[in-house]
Simulated scan of single mutants.
Amino acid sequence: MKLKICGMKYPENILEVGALLPDYMGFIFWEKSARYFNGTIPELIKTIKKVGVFVNQSLEEILEKVVKHNLQAVQLHGNESVEFVSELKKQLSKKIEIIKVFSADENFDFEIIKPFEPFCDYFLFDTKGKLPGGNGTTFDWSILKKYNSKKPFFLSGGIGMKELKAIEEISKSSLPIYAVDVNSKFEIEPGLKNRNLFSNFKRKFDVANF
């Protein structure tokens, strides 16, 4: 199972956390976010995939950021349509991954994700809340039993140290969980991550060998 840390903002902190070798590192390019990234991403170890996070933004803006920051993945965190994702896939290099996010609660209908399957590399399930992401709470993971797709997905939403045991349990199921996505539970303030706390989490995550 892969590990993604999202909402990175400050260059020195990016390098500190990058030294711990997460598989993915996310940068939010949505201006209304407290974790909005508007700088230059420092050079990271090449095994770390840089993810651009977008919320209902134009194709032009996404493509511009992909080129500017040499992104390896695009995460769509808004209400993007199937048609939009299809067109984005056509215009992106085949090497660039597309991650489509869905905000989940107990009433989530997994049927709505099916039309997106041909155009996404991964789905990501986050907690439904006031904000598109970074709400700091988990959703009821038992609803994932209704997941009826073979498409691998990222698990997100308020994941911290206390959730490791539950992640271990869910990893034993037949669900195609590809990665765990962490953010707010490892912050000193929005966008600034606690390196030591994340280091401790990653060490236990790696030992668990999901």
Rank of each mutant, 00 (worst) to 15 (best):
L3S: 02
I5T: 12
G7I: 03
K9Q: 05
K9R: 02
K9E: 02
E12A: 15
N13A: 07
I14T: 02
L15P: 11
E16H: 03
G18E: 02
L20H: 04
P22V: 01
P22Y: 00
D23Q: 06
Y24E: 04
G26Q: 01
F29V: 03
S33W: 09
S33H: 03
G39D: 03
E43K: 14
L44N: 04
I45F: 08
K46H: 12
T47Y: 05
T47H: 12
K49G: 05
G52A: 10
N56C: 06
N56T: 01
Q57S: 08
Q57K: 07
S58T: 13
E60I: 04
E60S: 11
L63M: 00
K65M: 11
K65E: 04
V67L: 14
H69A: 10
H69L: 12
L71P: 05
Q72A: 08
Q72C: 07
V74I: 06
L76F: 08
L76C: 05
K89H: 09
Q91S: 06
K94A: 13
K95G: 13
I98W: 08
I98T: 09
I98Q: 13
I99H: 12
I99R: 13
V101W: 00
S103A: 15
E106W: 07
E106P: 08
I113T: 11
F116S: 04
F116T: 01
E117R: 12
P118E: 05
F119T: 00
F119P: 08
F123I: 06
F125D: 10
G129F: 15
K130P: 10
G134L: 13
T137P: 00
D140W: 09
D140F: 02
W141K: 06
S142F: 06
I143C: 13
K145D: 14
N148Q: 14
K150A: 15
K150M: 10
K151D: 04
S156V: 00
G157V: 09
K162M: 15
L164Q: 02
A166N: 07
A166I: 15
I167E: 05
E169L: 14
K172E: 08
S173D: 01
P176R: 07
P176M: 14
P176G: 07
V180D: 01
V182H: 03
N183R: 01
N183M: 01
S184D: 15
K185D: 07
F186C: 07
E187T: 00
E187S: 03
E187W: 07
E189T: 09
E189K: 14
N196K: 13
S199H: 12
N200C: 13
F205S: 00
F205A: 01
D206N: 10
V207S: 15
N209C: 14
N209I: 11
F210T: 01
